[in-house]
Simulated assay, not measured.
Amino acid sequence: MTMHQSIDPAAPRNGEAPAPLKRATRADFLRADDKDMLRAARDLTSDLGTANPRIYWTDMLISAALGYAGIAVAILVDSLAIAVIAGLVASLALYRALMFIHELTHIHRDALPGFRTGWNLAVGIPLLTPSFMYEGVHVIHHKRTQYGTVEDPEYLPLALMKPWSLPVFVIVALLASAALIVRFAVLVPLGKLFPGLRTFTWERFSALSINPDFRRKPPKGDFAKRVAWQEAGASLWAIALIASGFVLGWRPLLIALAILSFTALLNQLRTLVAHLWENEGEPMTVTAQFLDSVNVPPPGPIAEMWAPVGLRYHALHHLMPSMPYHDLPEAHRRLARELGTDSTYDGANHPGMAVLVGRIARSTMTKR
């Protein structure tokens, strides 16, 4: 019996029926990996893993265009119902376009020529979320010795915290759009005059992180050059947005901010259920990290809206971080078929957001 099937099965005694098999859990793999599962992940997906430029560019550009068109309709129409529908479409489309920032942190720099620059010009800078805010940050979250520890910028033991922490964690996302305008339109220009403010802004407000103790190190080399032009572009755009309020009135900007605030809220909800958040700071094996992460596989299309661009396969992504998002569904099908429903792999598969939120909420009410 291999580890990926079950662990510690009770042998029959005196003619008794064997005890039910127990699926392996995260705690079972804190010190040792399920090597069978890791080997299967490698062998069964060896022909996958090449980023397809046509898929990336088409998906990103259509999502961005649909999002901006939705914002325009929401601003221009007189019907409240149509404006709300257009705003919802815009929010979901721009959310999908924004989530390509996750792909940018993992794909090889030569895999998609021009895509990083194109994404920043079409999405990152207009939405005040240039790729430097995730690049160099998210990779720490994938380091074996830092995932789930105090050094991880994208991890908090939310399932072990006070019950009030969950609504605060979600609701604070509504402030993200306004905070980004302040960062780029106010703090960046002032940082040119006051180096101490520049350092403070970089360390505290330059990373898409949830760990309040994370302090970002200064950029170096080619990355520093990318930061310079992306930050300058976002700063100029943020200043233009504020100026537009004096020229065009504040209604268009407020509508756009409302739409993007809903996008940020949706992303925060996705973040809330991206992991089980049950680690208290100790280093974990790859398998333990996998089981602390979440897949929400088909059937059902809803997860594709709140966890787009491959993020519904977030646990699988932690097994194979460099796998392009368009190959993750096929990789999942192969592993699920080969390893079965009582496997370690199946232990990371969950039915949906509501169940996961309920699990975390119950944990906060019982463990503290």
Rank of each mutant, 00 (worst) to 15 (best):
M1N: 14
T2F: 12
R13E: 14
N14S: 14
N14G: 15
G15S: 13
D28M: 13
F29G: 06
A32V: 15
D34Y: 04
K35R: 15
K35Y: 06
L38M: 10
R39W: 11
D43M: 13
L44I: 06
L48T: 07
L48I: 06
T50R: 15
A51E: 10
N52C: 10
N52L: 08
P53D: 09
Y56M: 10
Y56E: 08
T58Y: 02
D59E: 15
D59A: 14
L61Y: 06
I62K: 07
S63D: 10
L66A: 15
I71L: 12
A72N: 05
D78L: 11
A81Y: 08
A81S: 13
I82W: 07
F100M: 03
E103S: 12
L104F: 09
H108T: 12
L112K: 00
F115R: 08
F115Q: 01
T117M: 14
T117L: 13
A122N: 08
V123D: 00
G124L: 09
P130Q: 09
S131F: 07
S131Q: 01
F132P: 02
H138F: 00
T145G: 07
Y147W: 10
V150N: 07
E151H: 13
E151G: 12
E151R: 13
E154C: 09
P157T: 01
L158P: 01
L166W: 00
V170R: 05
I171L: 14
V172G: 02
L174W: 08
L174Q: 03
A178K: 02
L180Y: 01
V182K: 01
F184P: 03
V186K: 05
V186Q: 00
L187V: 01
F194R: 04
L197R: 10
F200E: 02
W202S: 06
R204N: 02
L208D: 09
R215H: 09
G221Q: 05
D222L: 11
W229F: 09
W229T: 02
E231P: 00
A232G: 06
G233C: 05
A238G: 06
I239C: 05
I242H: 04
I242W: 11
S244H: 03
F246E: 04
F246Y: 12
W250K: 05
L253V: 11
L260F: 05
A264F: 08
L266Q: 07
Q268G: 04
L269S: 08
R270I: 04
V273I: 15
V273Y: 03
P283Q: 10
T285R: 09
T287G: 12
S293P: 00
N295E: 11
N295D: 15
G300A: 04
I302Y: 10
A307G: 05
L311N: 03
L311D: 07
Y313F: 15
A315R: 00
H317W: 07
L319G: 00
A331H: 00
L339Y: 04
G340M: 07
D342Q: 15
H350S: 12
H350C: 13
A354F: 13
V355N: 13
T366Q: 13
K367P: 00
